[in-house]
Design a protein around this nucleic acid. Sequence first.
DNA 1: TTGTATGCGTTATCAG
DNA 2: CTGATAACGCATACAA
Lengths: 372, 372
Amino acid sequence: MRPRSVTLLDVARAAGVSRATVARVINGDGYVGEETRSRVEAAVQATGYRPNVVARGLRTQRSYTIGHIVLEIGANPFFTHVVRAVEGEALANGYKTFLFNHKGNTADERLAVESFIERRVDAVIFTYAQDAANIALLRAAAMPVVQIERQRTGDTSAVLVDNPAGVRMAMRHLIGLGHRRIAFIGGDPALYPHARIQPRSIEEERLDTYRDCLREAGIDPDPDLVRLGRYIKLGADGSDSEGYRHTRDLLALAERPTALFVGTDMLATGALQALYEARLRVPDDIALVGFDDTLAPHLAPKLTSVAQPMAELGLTAFQLALAAIEDPRSAPRVVTLAPHLVVRQSTAPPSGSTRPADPPAREGEIASRQTV
Amino acid sequence: MRPRSVTLLDVARAAGVSRATVARVINGDGYVGEETRSRVEAAVQATGYRPNVVARGLRTQRSYTIGHIVLEIGANPFFTHVVRAVEGEALANGYKTFLFNHKGNTADERLAVESFIERRVDAVIFTYAQDAANIALLRAAAMPVVQIERQRTGDTSAVLVDNPAGVRMAMRHLIGLGHRRIAFIGGDPALYPHARIQPRSIEEERLDTYRDCLREAGIDPDPDLVRLGRYIKLGADGSDSEGYRHTRDLLALAERPTALFVGTDMLATGALQALYEARLRVPDDIALVGFDDTLAPHLAPKLTSVAQPMAELGLTAFQLALAAIEDPRSAPRVVTLAPHLVVRQSTAPPSGSTRPADPPAREGEIASRQTV
DNA sequence: TTGTATGCGTTATCAG
DNA sequence: CTGATAACGCATACAA
């Protein structure tokens, strides 16, 4: 921008009016004579004027920009979809989004927060917040904050997912198909410490629900079938070793499971690799259900998966942010969204099973959506 | 930011000095007395001052922000990686990045360009530019532009990929393993019209190289084995139908191919689904090579793939942008990067083949990198 | 209906 | 070494 760009003054001169008048026609408010308006509009065209949003932001104290702090967009397509959704809704409302990946690193998250304060974004969205202190920093700067999926502190708006509902749908689907030895590969509650806001972490909720569903069906949970670990990998590239390893171990069991329920589609990729290696077919030899519904349609076979409401997550988060921007004193709101099960090719009755059980789950969605 | 944030003036008052002095210690330039400096620093701490980058940008005519216009980040992990790389290098240089997905839509791309002009970004990077007119708009606003991977116009810097080299590595690998019936699934040159800047489009380059390699090996290219179409899908979610369909057709051939070379890892997912359905094993029954090296390590079996230099692409693009920002009159530069082949589990000699051919390609990288 | 004047928070120029 | 002071481009209260 070396060659000083066109300003209001240039347009004003070209149209033979004052800057104020030009500003009025640009922003479409205030009284402007019909003839002057068209003269100004012509001048805008002629000069190729573009409002300077930076200057406007300085004057109005609104940057029409929000910050989105993400764990690591490259770690899981889940983040890509959420980011995209936030961005889309922001755009529809005249906002742009700044992204920052903290990589699970508190120091980086703090950098993100400081950078956003310096740029005077109008609000900050976290997917996921790492450190409560960083949220406090934002609150001290009076910036609205929205937390997505994981709630670190209770003083901001949040959009959560009903995880137990997701697990229940998957488990009932498998149990309905006749499975009784269902393995669970997921996140270790001990590795994902949570704030005191919620009684249970997401990992605990999922694990508990898995066990509850088994018991409801009269099945005694077998500890051998539960494999926990880190299920959000940050190594960026490279394959999933966690799902691979656990699956291999499960296959080595004396009495192997007939179905696998894994905590993310990423884990499912590792599971599929182990199964491929063992020359087992899905769902013929073993059924597989994923979580997130990200990679699910791209895998062979196409995966049955619990779909996270990623689009709604992002959209709702932006809406909550916008509400807080427009009324800074409004009370924080927490919205919980429901996941739904997408049945594809990776689930079927256990081999040797005679009864068809459930309606032969056709490809498609079993929706279940609600807002609390 | 309702409660007016702390400004230079607040700090100045707290320290009993002028704003100019505070500015000097903040920016670390100009002479400042030792004692004043520490007094100011204390005041900065006490007040929790954060420089207002918006105001600074207005004054310095530098926003320390760049715009990145992407085809569609959700369409292919390739974009995610490039975006991430641009962003990382930007961050390391004190820049933030605005993202915009044009979805192959010229009108949206124009919106992106206008939005970036209004926000006075310091430069714009395209992955990929859709319409030359939009680049012209930017140039008229005197904004540096860098094009990644596809060069739409010749008047800006660009970072390209040596596609023929990538295809050659893959083909020599397969031919070396003993394959002679190698199918090619890729982009149809007719569907991806290119500007006149390059003699051939990327699609033409790839196809030509495929044929050249066959001929070099004394193999007469079989038109039946070439399947072209749209290989960048924008439907966002949902599976890849292109790779699936083509693969199914190829398998129905009287004399089926012993190896498949597909233009993107996304296409490979469809191919693997078709193969899974046909109960064919990879690489036992048929070999498979992907392109991009994005999903490759996540598939079963892990895919041999031509790796795009995504990190370097992004990094170099930002460097070229920065160079143009710092010296607006510098001549545009074009950098070409080389891909490399990553050999994994999906390639082996054709079934029935006796000669071990090549050194039994161990897992790992066959690097080949260069900058022209 | 239109113009004038002021300030948003910085940086930069020029005195002192 | 430090302090006034004038922009940067825009929006807006107030005059005319």
